[in-house]
Design a protein around this nucleic acid. Structure first.
Lengths: 299, 299
DNA sequence: AAAATGTTTTTTCCCGATAAAAGACATTAC
DNA sequence: GTAATGTCTTTTATCGGGAAAAAACATTTT
């Protein structure tokens, strides 16, 4: 077995959800762009849907015969990319204790443990190395640098530099720029979430990322935009890991975001700078407080 | 053939150079650390040196029998890493015209052209992607973003941000920090090079990198330090590519460096900021002037 | 007993091969 | 004649295998 068909399975599942909405499916190329896959994959999906009696398919006509049942879906875990599987396993090991800084990382062992080939693990480690948590020894093993306090400080230092600059660039954008509409929409979503904070307070993580990515995009600098991948990755796992006072933290953050958004809309650089600094400071505090090691004694 | 023995060949060549200096070689572990390879490789080297009559080897005694001749050395091209070979080929293609932005990159074609396996090319592209010149389309090809004016501007924007901050951190370092000695040494090298500029003006590239890396190291931030890899890579190929007015440019740069170094030694943040800005500005000009495309009409 | 050498095991690096997925070309339908 | 479908080709994603290199273990030497 050389390659799993997770692309097909994932697209198939997403296509099933489309089935409930229409009586007839669109053309193959249209479905392809809709699902983000090639026509080859679209045709595999249609073939199976015909076989399982979901649709009647003859050339251009693709009539929906019945609504999909839960059994029609492929299991969630079969739709993941290998890269996602490896990343999850790796991060679980890294965060679930026993991951001391300086520890060696063994490609072969990782591959065997996860049940994948070494090539995939190697490629993952190379991609992952840009996050600054691991380092390669030439012709030898990888070294874990660890999710330490130093790491968090270095990360936030860059983040603050980049976000302050991006926020300043944001207010300088012309009024007809589409970012203002995006900002408006995000503000509305913040208000909605603020109302439902009691029940959906974990949905904040995703909104947070979209908000900050929008601001970073104003920098029009690929290195700044790309750097947000590092932050997003860390926060993604951080949110999963550190559930302490999650609700309060998110409530505070939503409040800070709303002030920040108001400042951006005012187009007053001073206000923006202040709001941005305030939010970044509390974000840093949140991150730092979740790192057990290195809690230096306060004199 | 699954793996070339370039590590062995490169270490062998370096070991040959050691031969001229001593009558007896040190112990195997010592040689290993000296050459940066494992004992396994050291023993392969010693075995061959014995076979070719360079040394007499019996357990601890490794007596040099004769000086190495040019024929003893492995050819230079056999000592390169696969990664180096691929990078060179790739950059040659990229810089030697015909590399339009938006162009597709074909792993298989690249691999065939260079004469290596696809895995190595894939790994190279993944590593290379952090330089911001290429981008991956999920489940599909890579896209060349091109060495454009926009790229150069985005790169220098970050560079300036990082270096100004690093330089500011530099002057704040305590007087007993080893960086001051390093700086002193670099200053001396600059003076030497300034004197020999007529004959060795291309040695500047290497000195330039060491100087800026020293400054960046003062940031004590892995992201800033790592970012210099991007700059170094671009400048490396830029120096090879753009030989126009090389001597004058380097002369100017050496002068700017010396002012910059003096400012650092004065520990006066204002002076440092000014010297740093001035140098970075001319570095940016040099880089921009070498990019043909986008030479906007001057009104 | 500390440090070297001798020997064996493990890991990294890289290739070729193969199924999945994308893409290109040919043909048909409207 | 444009846009779809049908068919064929190319490329990507991934694995297993094997040589190079590292690392671990055992034995000898000083």
């Amino acid at each position: 077995m050389s390659k799993s068909n997770n692309v097909y399975k994932d697209a198939y599942n997403r296509c099933l959800r489309l089935l409930g909405e229409t009586r007839n499916l669109p053309s193959e190329p249209e479905l392809g762009t809709l699902l983000g896959v090639s026509r080859t994959t679209v045709r595999s999906i249609l073939t199976r849907m015909e076989e399982t009696g979901l649709i009647a398919w003859a050339k251009r006509s693709k009539t929906v015969l019945r609504d999909p049942t839960p059994e029609d879906f492929f299991p969630e875990e079969e739709t993941d990319t290998l890269a996602e599987i490896i990343e999850r396993s790796f991060m679980r090991r890294l965060l679930a204790g026993g991951a001391e800084a300086g520890m060696q990382i063994n490609e072969l062992e990782l591959a065997r443990e996860i049940g994948v080939g070494t090539t995939s693990v190697r490629e993952f480690l190379i991609r992952f190395s840009r996050f600054g948590l691991i380092e390669k020894r030439r012709n030898s093993h990888w070294v874990l640098k660890g999710f330490t306090r130093a790491f968090a400080l270095e990360l936030t230092e860059i983040r603050e530099m980049f976000e302050l600059r991006s926020a300043a660039a944001f207010v300088a954008l012309p009024p007809d720029s589409p970012v203002w509409a995006d900002l408006e929409r995000l503000e509305a979503e913040h208000h909605v979430l603020a109302g439902e904070i009691a029940t959906r307070f974990n949905a904040f993580s995703e909104l947070d990322e979209r908000f900050h990515r929008l601001i970073h995009s104003a920098s029009r600098n690929r290195f700044i935009v790309d750097f947000y991948d590092v932050i997003a990755m860390i926060f993604h796992y951080h949110y999963q890991w550190n559930k302490a006072q999650e609700r309060e933290r998110n409530e505070v953050a939503i409040g800070e975001h709303l002030v920040y958004i108001a400042a951006l809309k005012s187009r007053d650089p001073g206000k923006v700078d202040a709001a941005c600094r305030k939010h970044l400071k509390s974000a840093r505090q949140t991150l730092l407080s979740s790192i057990p090691e290195g809690r230096q004694p306060q004199p």
